[in-house]
Structures are given as structure tokens and as C-alpha cells.
Design a protein around this nucleic acid. Sequence first.
DNA 1: TCGCTTGTAGGGTAATAACCCTACAGACAG
DNA 2: CTGTCTGTAGGGTTATTACCCTACAAGCGA
Lengths: 208, 208
Amino acid sequence: MISLLLADDHAIFLQGLTRLLDAWPEARIVAMAADGQEAWELIQRHKPDVAVVDIRMPKMSGIEIAGQVRALGLSTRVVVLTMHDEPALALEAERSGVAGYVLKDDTFEELSQAIEKVVSGSRYMSPAVSKNLHAFRLSSGGVTLSPREREVLKLIASGLSSKAIARALDISPKTVGTHRSRLMAKLDLHSVAELVRYAVETGFLSDK
Amino acid sequence: MISLLLADDHAIFLQGLTRLLDAWPEARIVAMAADGQEAWELIQRHKPDVAVVDIRMPKMSGIEIAGQVRALGLSTRVVVLTMHDEPALALEAERSGVAGYVLKDDTFEELSQAIEKVVSGSRYMSPAVSKNLHAFRLSSGGVTLSPREREVLKLIASGLSSKAIARALDISPKTVGTHRSRLMAKLDLHSVAELVRYAVETGFLSDK
DNA sequence: TCGCTTGTAGGGTAATAACCCTACAGACAG
DNA sequence: CTGTCTGTAGGGTTATTACCCTACAAGCGA
């Protein structure tokens, strides 16, 4: 019997998912959470076999949870459930030690399969995502943004000007400009508008 | 017995919701759809009492469906289910004739209440949203963007420069600038970055 | 009819962004 | 220990944006 923790900030979704999993004999739900921090605390307390967590949650993202789980060497396997079929996010998840990656527009069968897969020790990625991820890697998209670049990107996407970002980070506006240029070069984007769109769509603002 | 149509592009969510509604004796699900267009066709065919639809769906948004339902004078009441507690979207929904507005982070009880409410002829809006909507209206946020302004906003958020937008719409870059200024004045935003963020977050790109 | 909004377009100026460089210290990987 | 990446910062130029105006015809609602 697989012990499960579920975390999602959308109550209706959580309720529905609970029903689906209740009807699945392989697993037993041992805890539920409505935000990331709560989920993380419950994982430490209950040490479930698998934690099924949303990526986009208040306080702490599913990816951060996976990072913590790995950092503390817990045996819990993390399966993230997300709406966005976003290669950049999937890459991020992979790097954080996420064991399973399932889309909300996959079916429940896909999810239960993922859960079984990850308890057996392997990784599972929704076919739709892995296909895109592959294409993404090939298309020179396998870029890694440095922590500082992420930080700057987040601020750009928040609507701050270079000058404002410079003040916020206590660096020169020229340095902000350099970071912006490098971001644009790496991502092959050519205007703030595109950067902001990229950031919002890949969840830079709300997730991390 | 209330007849229902469900539409959501997230299969897991739809499956979970189905379980929840199956266990609710008041209603019977007569049709389900995975995208907006399919939902709209099934509404015309089955004429359900209530259509519970996601806002953000491929091909056709829940708001567009509500508009069509009203345009054809169908008796079906539309309840939109959305993740985003976004006053601008709620206003848009209200104007399109949506009868109920429920957030995915409300509970199922909230949804069933909304369904009962709308069949009885009244409107239902999730308390969290109506609170924000009220604040939004007061805070001079009750702005209406003209069709042309929406169009320009969409292009700005797509990453096009004024010059490019001018070419696309076959108008002068100066006119684009005027639209941009008016958008910024109306929305109290002061940079493309903020406009793009606003557009993406209120779903201008993917929803409408 | 009067006022308001819309869509169009222009003249200005100042600030910012976008793109070109260079430079250098520290980290880290091969 | 040599090369690449990162974070820092500067000098340039040009393009674009942001913010001032004005203007006018069309439409719409009071």
C-alpha cells in the first residue's frame, strides 16, 4: 500500500482528486495540504511514500518542496502536477529532483501510473511533456539562467525599470543592463515585452 | 434534477469533478467536453440546465461560451470555474452574461451552491471574488478598454514594438503610441513590462 | 445639441532600452 | 592551469518608449 500526501491550493481539485484516489486500492492518502509550506511540514511529519504536489502554490512551490526533500535526504518521492506544459519548468523540476511530472490535462490513469512508477524507483514524465522537453533541448533551448539572472528577470517582469532594479539590488544600472542583455541572448528574446511574457508564462513570478 | 454539462481541458480535474458531482443527488451530468468549442456544440445539442465551464480553454473560452449562449437566447445558465481571482476577468465574465463565478480554490460545496443558485434564476459569485471586485470597482479600476485598445494591448503583450504593431494594424506608429498611452492611463500602469504582465495575468493572450 | 469616448495622427522632449564594445575577479570544470 | 561562466561596471550609439501637447471626425448617450 502506497502512502500519499496531496497538496494543491485549489480546493475543488483537491476534493476531486481525493475521490479518484480513494477509489484506487493501491494507495492511501495520509495527509493533504492547501499550500506549499503546509505540504512540506506534513511531508516531514508523515514521511509518505509519494507526495503529489502542485507546482504553483502559495508560500512554497512544488519544485522547492522537491529540492528540500532531496536536501534532507527524505525517502519521499515527489510527483508534481501542473497545468503548464512548459519545457523550461519541466527542466527546472528535473534538476530539483522531482520524480514524476504529470500534467493536469493528463488523465487520472496517467497519474496513478506515475505514482506506481516512482515508488518502484524510476522517474515518470508525462509523454506530452517529455516530447516537448526533447524538442526544447534540441532547439538550443537547454539554457540555464544563473541565480542572479533569474532574480533580474523576475524584477523586470514585475515591471521595474533598470534604474529601479539597480536600486533594489544595489548594483549599477549598467550591470542590470548586462544581465538583461545576457537574458535576451540566452533566451533569444529581444524586448522587455518578450522577457515579461516569457517570465510570466514559465511561472517565474508566482512559482519561485 | 438539474442537468449539467462540464467542460475543462484538464482531464484529471474533469474526472475528479465528475466524481464529486456523481455523488451529489441534485444533478445529473449529461455531457462533458475537453475544449470550448466542443462544449459549445454540446450545449446546443443537449441544452443542459447548467454548463460548468473553465474560462481558460483551447479554441473557445468560457466567457465566449457565455456570450454565445446569451446571443442565441438559450436557457442554459453558465457557471465559470477559474483559477484566477482576477477582478478584471470577473468583470468581463459579468458583462458576458455569466450566471455564476466560482474559483477552483473554493470548495465543492461552494460550486454546488452556485449551481443551485443559478438554476433558481439568480447569480452567484464566489465571496472571495466579489470582495475583490468591489474593491476593484472602487479603486477606479472599473475601466473598459475599447476593442481597438484590447487589440493593441494584445500585440504589445505579444512582444511587438510600436512600429511592428503599426505595420500589423496598418496605422501610424503615433496612433499606436496614443493607444498605448491611453491603456497605461486607464490601467494606471507605466511601462510595457507592466502592460505585458497585466495582459498575461488577466488572460488577454490565451483566453480571448 | 452638448459632452464624452474612440480612433486616427501629428509635434515635441526626456528617459529608457537595445545593442555594440571592453574589462576584471572569482568560481568551477575539464 | 586554462578556459568558460558569472557578476560586476564602464564607454559608446541608436531605437524605442514615455510623457507632454494639439487636432478632428465619428459615434453615442443624456
